[in-house]
C-alpha cells in the first residue's frame, strides 16, 4: 500500500496527516514552539507512530504553511491556500467558500465545483481577525482560548470592540472591563470583531454556500456563530478543522506520486 504525508507548519501549530488507500490513516497536531523544522519532524514522527509506520514506508511528502520551506524531508512544497482548498473539498465536496482563521493569518478562499481555487483574500501584516487577536484578548481577560467559545454563547449584550487593530482592541477591552462589562459580553464582542474583520476581508471575493470554517478558530463555537450572523450564511466545520491544510498537502502528495508512477 502507498502512504503519503502532508505537513502543515503554521505560526502556532504543526499538523501532519498520513493518507493512504484513499482515506486519512491518522493525523497529529502539535505546537510549533521555538523551532519550525523540529516541530515538523516531531509532528510527523508522532503521526507515523500512531499509524504504526516507519519513514521508509512513506512514498511522498508535501509541506505547506509558513514553515513549509523548513521541512527538509518534504519532496515538494505548496501554498496553504491551495492545500486548504484541496483538503476541504475532499471532506466536503459541496463547499464553495472556505474561511480559514489560523494563528497569524485569516483567509477567505472561493473554490469551484471541482475544488479548484478561483479567488482568495488573505490578511497582510495586521493581526486583527486572526488567532493571534483571540490569543491576546484571552490573555487580557485571564481565560484560555478554549473558554472563549462557550463563554460567548452565554452573552446577551455583546460589547462593541474595534475590528481594525489588535493593539487598539486590547486597550478597549481593558477599559470596557474596568467599566464593569462582563467577561462573556466582552468575549462575544471580541468574536463579533473577528467576524466583522473576516467578512470585510472576504467582501471583495464574496461568500457562496456552502461555507466551511477551518483553522484553530474552527474549534470556537462563538466565532462560528458570529461569522454566521455577520455573513448571514450557515457555516459548517470539519470534525478536525485544523488539519485541512495538511490533508490537502497529503492529497497533493498522492497526486504527485501518481503522476510520477502512472
Amino acid at each position: 500500500m502507498s502512504y503519503y504525508v502532508g505537513v502543515d507548519v503554521g505560526a502556532g501549530t504543526a499538523k501532519a496527516v498520513i493518507f493512504g488507500n484513499n482515506s486519512i490513516i491518522t493525523y497529529s497536531v502539535r505546537p510549533v514552539l521555538d523551532n519550525v523544522a523540529a516541530a515538523a519532524e516531531r509532528v510527523t514522527l508522532e503521526a507515523l507512530k500512531r499509524a504504526g509506520l516507519s519513514r521508509n514506508s512513506i512514498n511522498y511528502v508535501v509541506s505547506t504553511g509558513y514553515g513549509r520551506s523548513s521541512v527538509g524531508f518534504a519532496d515538494k512544497v505548496s501554498s496553504e491556500i491551495i492545500c486548504h482548498a484541496k483538503g476541504v473539498y475532499y471532506l466536503k465536496p459541496e463547499s464553495r467558500t472556505i474561511i480559514d482563521i489560523g494563528a497569524q493569518d485569516s483567509k477567505v478562499i472561493r473554490i469551484t465545483g471541482s475544488g479548484k481555487v478561483i479567488d482568495f483574500a488573505m490578511n497582510d501584516k495586521c493581526a486583527a481577525g486572526t488567532g493571534r487577536f483571540l490569543e491576546v484578548m484571552a490573555s487580557v481577560l485571564g481565560i484560555t482560548l478554549e473558554d472563549l467559545g462557550p463563554l460567548s454563547l452565554e452573552s446577551r449584550n455583546p460589547c462593541r470592540i474595534s475590528s481594525t487593530c489588535t493593539v487598539f482592541a486590547e486597550s478597549e477591552v481593558v477599559i470596557l472591563r474596568a467599566q464593569g462589562n462582563s467577561v462573556k459580553d466582552l468575549v462575544a464582542g471580541i468574536h463579533q470583531a473577528v467576524a466583522k474583520r473576516v467578512t470585510i476581508l472576504g467582501a471583495g471575493i464574496g461568500f457562496e454556500n456552502e461555507v466551511v470554517l477551518t483553522g484553530g478558530a474552527g474549534k470556537n463555537v462563538g466565532i462560528k456563530k458570529s461569522l454566521e450572523e455577520a455573513t448571514g450564511m450557515k457555516i459548517s466545520t470539519p470534525l478536525e478543522p485544523q488539519i485541512t491544510g495538511a490533508l490537502g498537502a497529503a492529497l497533493i502528495a498522492q497526486n504527485e506520486f501518481g503522476s510520477m508512477h502512472p
Binding site: 505548496s78 501554498s79 491556500i81 491551495i82 501584516k125 471583495g204
Partner: peptide, 28 residues
C-alpha cells in the same frame, strides 16, 4: 491579485505572506 506593500521600505515587507499569495495566484 491584490497585493499591498511599500514602494521602498524593507522594514514593512511581508515576503512570506506575499509568496503565499503569489504561489496561489500562479496556480490559479
Amino acid at each position: 491579485l491584490l497585493l499591498e506593500g511599500d514602494y521602498c521600505d524593507s522594514r514593512s515587507r511581508t515576503t512570506d505572506q506575499m509568496i503565499t499569495k503569489l504561489e496561489t495566484f500562479a496556480e490559479v
